[in-house]
Design a protein around this nucleic acid. Structure first.
Length: 437
RNA sequence: GGUGAAAUGGCCGAGUGGUUUAAGGCGCUCCUCUGCUAAGGGAGUAUGUUUAUACAUCGAGGGUUCGAAUCCCUCUUUCACCGCCA
């Protein structure tokens, strides 16, 4: 349930800031709906009071002696009742409209977030690592996978249509190793591993900010059988499941920061995803991602955002993948974010940086909506919620296959992954990895 | 999937149409008495609303009624047994 009072407070306090990020925002309409809502509520309260008084009168009267009076009062009250019904209907439609307006307002951007409308306005914070010079022509992961018959898109089309993948053998093992390594690393950093549902109620998507704006990206489930009772969808990211674990929960300040990590599949309908970075495993309907979520004291959220980003960067450093950290401009941030850092890894094939992580501070946007808070000095305080990918597994697979070729088509597996690779240290043309075709 | 039972404050739990304006207990907070402890006495103790001697909230939403925690309908969840399955 939307915490209306808090949201409205923010709307009134920060209306100019909201307009910076959401130029179409109509403050007047929202304000008028709110006024109407309040006056209707007052009217209804007044009518109810009247009704209650009359009804009480009836209960105090002796029926036999006062039958005429009672009948009169009954008539009066039934008129009041009808009025209440009518006004309540108005109230509900007014409330619905007001909520729609509130749900459509994105988070307010932090003051140091660049205002802008395209990728050019993003700010590169820093770069790490060395782009390798290759003495041979690097083979793309698509070619390499096809040659080894370990990444197959023809088969996935057969099974599920476009934008899915089948991964087999050594590359499948590498894929699993990457996820395992990331998960274990974050656990070492005091994140609590959580297993969550991949199918969730649509209402959760409003809490985390994917709905109402981005319904095109969501796979909604149809009610074909009785197992699907309400409106359900596939998670676009485990952030949705993780954050919504805290619905209506009162936290203990001593338990902060709460740090969660999950490795889950993510499902994106991605309606309009044409253009760059579209090849092979890079943009699919189904992919896996290790997700980090932190609930922290509002005063510590900027530090926490940096920490989450560092947790993600640490993995890239260990894998020795050259990357850069980018501060996103207002236009590129997700709906719920107040500040976002993207982490992008160098791709020798595309000759550009490819996004592998997005770390956002959602400030109170999500905590208001899931209604989770703690008490400090007897006051309700809403924690800031930070999420970040740590990292997108499929894309890291691609970047390992393309960055670590020691000669065309032969890949040296990063050391940190060795313990998850069943003794395999290289992906070679002639390795025998239980191929079945 | 079938059948049956249930859902009331922080917790337990009473409550089948009108002093329920939610009894009683536990827990918690404050005061007090006694004091080594244990125990006793008193007061307080849900939330929301542009803050009201007001209104609303007894799983959710509708309905009946002058009046609903209470009656009716729909839904959700929980528990039990059976069926199916990993």
């Amino acid at each position: 349930m939307l915490n209306m009072k808090l949201l409205l407070n923010d709307v009134f306090l920060y209306k100019s800031k909201i307009k910076k990020r959401f130029p179409h925002f109509n403050y007047e309409i929202t304000w008028n709906l709110y006024k109407k809502y309040n006056s209707l509520k007052k009217e209804i309260n007044y009518l109810r009071k009247k009704r209650n008084v009359y009804s009480k009168n009836i209960s105090d009267l002796n029926i036999k002696d006062n039958i005429n009076i009672i009948l009169q009062v009954r008539k009066k009250v039934s008129l009041i009742r009808d009025k209440i019904k009518e006004k309540t209907q108005n109230l509900n439609s007014c409330l619905g409209k007001l909520q729609d307006k509130l749900y459509d307002i994105p988070n307010i951007a932090d003051c140091d977030v660049p205002i802008g409308s395209s990728d050019k306005d993003n700010k590169i914070i820093y770069k790490w690592g060395v782009k390798k010079n290759f003495s041979f022509k690097v083979m793309s992961h698509v070619k390499l996978g096809a040659k080894r018959r370990e990444i197959n898109f023809d088969e996935s089309v057969l099974l599920s249509g476009t934008k899915f993948s089948i991964i087999k053998g050594a590359i499948a093992c590498l894929y699993r190793a990457i996820g395992q390594y990331m998960l274990n690393t974050h656990i070492d950093n005091n994140y609590c591993e959580v297993y969550v549902p991949y199918i969730i109620k649509n209402s959760l998507l409003y809490n985390t900010g994917q709905l109402p704006r981005f319904s095109k990206d969501i796979f909604f489930l149809k009610k074909h059988n009785s197992a699907i009772k309400e409106n359900l969808s596939l998670i676009p990211t485990s952030e949705v499941s993780l954050v919504n674990l805290f619905q209506n929960k009162i936290l203990n300040i001593k338990d902060l920061p709460i740090k969660l990590v999950a490795n889950t599949p993510c499902f994106r309908a991605e309606a309009g995803s044409y253009g760059k970075n579209n090849r092979g495993l890079i943009r699919l309907h189904q992919f896996d991602k290790v997700e980090l979520v932190q609930l922290v004291h509002p005063k510590k959220s900027l530090i926490a955002l940096n920490n989450v980003t560092k947790n993600a960067e640490y993995i890239l450093k260990k894998l020795n993948l050259p990357y850069r950290k980018v501060l996103l401009c207002t236009h590129n941030m997700s709906f719920s974010a107040s500040k976002t850092y993207d982490i992008e890894v160098w791709s020798p094939i595309d000759n550009c940086y490819l996004e592998v992580s997005s770390c956002s501070n959602t400030s109170t946007f999500q905590s208001y909506r899931v209604n989770t808070f703690f008490y400090e000095d007897n006051k309700k305080v809403f924690p800031h919620i930070i999420n970040g990918s740590g990292l997108a597994i499929g894309r890291i697979l691609v970047l390992i296959l393309e960055n670590f070729q020691i000669e065309r088509g032969i890949v040296k597996i990063p050391k940190v992954l060795n313990r998850y690779m069943n003794g395999l240290k290289y992906i070679k043309h002639d390795d025998n990895n239980n191929k079945y075709v």
